[in-house]
Amino acid sequence: MTAPAIPAHLLPAGCPRAPAEEYDTALLDLDGVVYAGPAAVPHAVDALHLAGRAGMRLAYVTNNASRTPGDVADHLTRLGVPTGAHDVVTSAQAAARLVAEQVPAGSAVLVVGGRGLDEAVREHGLRPVGSLADGPAAVVQGFDPGVGWPQLAEASYAVAAGLPWIASNTDLSLPTDRGRAPGNGALVGVVRAATGAQPQVAGKPMPVMHRESMLRTAARRPLVVGDRLDTDIAGAVNGGVDSLLVLTGVTTARQLLAAGPGERPTYVAADLRGLLAPHPAVTAAAAEEAFRCGGWLARVADGRLLLEGHGPDPVDALRALCAAAWTALDRTGAVPALDPAAAAAEALLRTP
């Protein structure tokens, strides 16, 4: 019996060549992908060097608006990845462009954030100010660890007065070397709670950020690389480009298996070494809703996700599980019961 072809939406997909050879530019997220806090993610530096040698341009696209592109480039260079400011695209830059399209040239803009947002606003000929009393034409808000009640209060006064409100991003959490900390989305939530207003959002997953990335990198065939389904992968889906999810940041195997169509990556890898090797294809088995990858078989039976087999690469098990879980979700509208298959996949991924 011939196995049916897998519809295109049932990715992860196979890639017969290493993605570093297949795509001209990697649009890499930073936090949780390249580094966590001040330290590099394991294997990231070597993988990026090898991807560059294979001919892939490396560009860094981050929702973190607190630092300037130069600051980010310096950090990457210190980690052993030589980078220039022109290789970095931030949500602050996307937000500043969105502001500049809505206010007169030279306008004052109330900036709630750090140096990265200040610099991006100035790049568009606008003037950062810190109070509603300074006569701003708009409010732009981005993450900075120094943002406190006085800045959030000024933002609330300005938003309540009817000024356009642009948020660099709405990520609720920010990965650090100590764990997850509140992100810009948590701070945006304070202003939202105080005013009842909703901001325009510039960062991932919104098309504004994808546009900014394409304008600044001139990528012809980009691959988005990230660790978050709701920003990196959803942003790639919104932009109509392929994506690679790495499991070094916030997304767990369980969350990936429950992903809806708008948050499904093209490829999955344990870390950035996924740029350097071909990705095996997932194939449909003869049994209904059963899928193979490597030596693993995943299927859904009686509403439960099941995994069997063995193989040298635990990510192959996760790829097969994704195909089975996503097929069932699309067919029934409900996520199949993930235990114990998800637990088994997570245990395999933790095995050295």
Rank of each mutant, 00 (worst) to 15 (best):
H124K: 06
T25Y: 10
V34H: 08
T217G: 04
T2G: 07
A343I: 00
D230H: 13
A26P: 06
G196A: 01
V33G: 06
G135P: 12
P182W: 08
A337C: 10
E101I: 07
W326Y: 12
A153D: 13
E289P: 00
V224L: 15
G303D: 09
Q102M: 11
L110E: 06
A218N: 09
A120R: 08
S213R: 04
G80K: 02
P128W: 04
D339F: 00
L10S: 05
L30R: 03
W165Q: 04
T251G: 09
T351F: 13
P164I: 05
A186G: 09
M206K: 04
A120P: 10
R292Y: 14
E22T: 15
L276A: 10
R178C: 03
A44Y: 09
A54Q: 11
D118G: 03
A36K: 13
L174A: 05
A270D: 14
D313G: 12
A317I: 03
V88S: 00
A320W: 08
P19M: 02
H310R: 15
S91N: 07
V81Y: 00
A324W: 07
L276G: 14
H310M: 01
A108L: 04
V112D: 03
G84K: 02
L27P: 04
V268A: 06
V282N: 10
T195G: 11
N184M: 11
V315P: 09
L306D: 14
A96W: 01
A3Y: 06
L275T: 08
G333L: 03
A253F: 00
G185C: 07
D74T: 15
P336K: 02
L229H: 07
M56N: 07
A51Y: 00
H86L: 08
Q141C: 10
A344M: 03
A259P: 08
R264G: 04
S156V: 04
D242I: 03
R221W: 01
P265V: 10
A8Y: 07
H210E: 11
W149H: 10
P42I: 07
H9L: 08
D74K: 09
A344T: 15
L174F: 15
T195C: 10
A105I: 01
G162H: 01
D87M: 03
A194L: 15
T351R: 15
A13D: 14
V41Q: 06
D316N: 14
G294S: 10
R319W: 08
G295Y: 05
C15D: 13
P175Q: 02
A193K: 01
D134T: 04
L48Q: 04
H9E: 14
H86K: 08
V72P: 02
V41T: 13
A341F: 02
T248R: 07
N238F: 01
G295C: 11
A345K: 00
P104N: 09
A59K: 04
Q255I: 05
Q151S: 11
E123W: 11
A285H: 15
P314S: 11
P128C: 09
A65E: 07
A344D: 12
A334H: 14
S168Q: 00
V81N: 00
D177R: 12
R97A: 14
Y60R: 03
L117D: 05
P336Q: 05
T283D: 10
G113W: 02
R331W: 01
G14R: 06
V250P: 08
P16D: 13
P145L: 03
G106Q: 07
